[in-house]
């Protein structure tokens, strides 16, 4: 290395002075962590899966159409005619199942290690909300291919949502956007699936990560405690 900084270094220094890049790097990636094991990677794995779902999901909307007359055909088109359509939808399909699994395992790890205790209660509560929203993504996404399985799964699911007394029938109606499953159900599930729930999740993930970085992760519990 020469004494004079290279152009790239100069550019980095210029940006760093204004954006605080090296501070971000230090705080986010160079933060102190206790000696931990592989179970502590489940949160990152979930974040990775979420990112993949976002990317593949955005690309699926290039061809997918949320109307009863075209939904099924457009999914078929993605699977059979679009190049790598099978890959994009395949990742989204399997990623969805893996995401539920990984969120759950991540939650189990936090639970068994007692990592939800003071001062990390809020991280836990937000995590539980994220778990529920993940299930919501699974539920709303399942209807979108508009095949027999999707239709009947949503029939059953919205019926189950209607089991509480008094408010039950209202919940079913609101979920379906009317008396029965129709074009309105499909479009509202689509909207929930690609806008409302993901936006809420992104916000909560940001807070969740902020708390993880701010408070740090907990030591694995030891025998003496």
């Amino acid at each position: 290395m020469t004494d004079k900084p290279s152009r790239m270094q100069a550019l980095y220094a210029w940006l760093d002075e204004r954006l605080g890049l090296s501070t971000i790097y230090k705080v986010v990636l160079d933060r102190k962590v206790p000696k931990v094991n592989w179970w502590y990677t489940l949160g990152s794995a979930t974040l990775f899966l979420f990112t993949m779902q976002v990317i593949t999901g955005i690309f699926l909307t290039v061809y997918y159409v949320p109307t009863p007359d075209h939904a099924y055909d457009s999914v078929n088109y993605i699977m059979q005619d679009v190049s790598f359509g099978w890959l994009v939808r395949g990742i989204h399909h399997w990623g969805a199942s893996f995401m539920v699994l990984f969120v759950f395992l991540h939650m189990l790890r936090v639970f068994y290690m007692g990592a939800y205790k003071y001062p990390r209660e809020l991280t836990w509560v937000i995590g539980v909300l994220l778990f529920v929203l993940t299930l919501g993504m699974g539920f709303t996404g399942y209807l979108l291919p508009w095949n027999q399985r999707a239709y009947w799964a949503t029939t059953v699911g919205t019926q189950i949502a209607g089991t509480p007394p008094i408010i039950g029938p209202w919940i079913t109606r609101i979920l379906r956007g009317g008396e029965e499953i129709s074009a309105l159900t499909l479009s509202r599930f689509f909207s929930l699936h690609i806008w409302m729930i993901p936006a809420l999740m992104a916000l909560l993930i940001a807070v969740h990560l902020y708390l993880v970085i701010r408070i740090g992760i907990s030591n694995p519990p030891s025998k003496d405690e």
């Binding site: 990317i55 690309f59 290039v62 005619d81 679009v82 190049s83 790598f84 359509g85 890959l87 994009v88």
Partner: peptide, 9 residues
């Protein structure tokens, strides 16, 4: 693959 996915049709 994503580029090809977007462009192919």
């Amino acid at each position: 693959p994503l580029v090809s996915y977007f462009v192919s049709p």
